[in-house]
Design a protein around this nucleic acid. Structure first.
Lengths: 189, 189
DNA sequence: TAAAATAAGTCAATATGGCTGACATAATTT
DNA sequence: AAATTATGTCAGCCATATTGACTTATTTTA
């Protein structure tokens, strides 16, 4: 008990030093930490949607991500996938191999550059993609403000602005996102 | 197609608690998938904030999560932590052990029940918590709609509604979240 | 009071999904 | 012909999770 009080003392001291630079108030802090935790719990449940389906197929989340973006961008190269997922090719290799071996993804040599292996979903791959994305769409749809004007735009903008500025243009191009980032994407300094 | 219907069957249990939702149109689908991908990218960058700090200390994200909730709920039991993080005690054990050994968390026997090990952050633990939460608060603060009326409430509500209904009450109690979940949390059936 | 239940810790084996480094192969570019 | 590029592969490592079985200390309960 005494420890907790002295902890609070010490925290007050260090906080006083920090307060000279940034302007996050104590009142604001609680709300921001609540947001941080909400993001943690929301994401955990968000990814759990697909986990049950994946288990049926003996796949993990890594397979899901690969399958997802191959469906969304059929014909993308291995290098593109690595760039989107921000993983190494050694990490991708076993996952992609399993998806190919089990018949969910096919690789074809590029037309212009035959070194490239362009990735396409098979019919089975498309079906699995749908099974995985369906519960996630349902969850997002239910969570999104339904009839309020601009409600979903606010959420979309928030998510977009959580992304590091350098990646925003690339991601907007990738996902074809509507409202996000018309102005001050990495300006506004 | 048949798969989608059977998938809907699988989801019927949880959906029945909420409400009957109309089917997702093709036009809606694109927007929902964009949201799904935004969540993926936003979360990836969100957690990356802490990674740089963690690396300095030789810790991983598991350490971060433990340290975070011990700071937020000083005196919680090991069982509470397992429940919040939804991991097994065997997963927690090495992570907690390291945090204790390196002096960021202390364990004390419970007063009422001396079997319980209540977890408290040390001074160093509180400082590291602050270092980890600070950049995340900054990111959230920047991404949140600043002066628009109700903007952050909309986002908060969205995140809250992404959580599975059964957990919402517990999480609201844990994080002391303001706007989220005044009505129809798990009602509506 | 003796037995059962509980909180926590521990040991072992296993799996997933990341990483780095080094090297091979085929195709393209210079 | 040589360098570069795209991809694949091998080996080893690490972090984080799992299940199962067991111990210890403590509390509850029959």
């Amino acid at each position: 008990m005494a420890d907790i009080i002295s902890d609070a003392d010490r925290e007050r001291k260090s906080r006083a030093l920090l307060r000279t630079v940034p302007p996050i108030s104590d009142a604001e802090e609680g709300a921001l930490i609540a947001f941080i935790e909400l993001i943690f719990f929301a994401y955990r449940d968000f990814v759990s949607d697909a986990d049950a389906v994946l288990e049926e197929f003996g796949f993990g989340r890594a397979h899901h991500r690969v399958l997802h973006f191959v469906n969304r961008r059929p014909g993308l190269r291995v290098a593109d996938l690595l760039d989107i997922l921000k993983i190494t090719k050694q990490s991708l290799a076993p996952v992609l191999k399993q998806l190919v071996e089990k018949g969910y993804i096919v690789q074809r040599a590029g037309v212009h550059d035959r070194r490239e292996r362009l990735l396409y979903p098979t019919e089975e791959g498309k079906e699995l993609f749908r099974r995985l994305v369906e519960p996630q769409m349902e969850r997002v749809k239910r969570a999104l403000p339904e009839s309020k004007i601009g409600g979903s735009d606010v959420v979309e903008r928030f998510l977009f602005d959580m992304i590091v500025p350098e990646e925003r243009v690339q991601i907007r191009n990738l996902i074809g996102c509507s409202s996000a980032g018309s102005i001050d994407d990495e300006a506004g300094a």
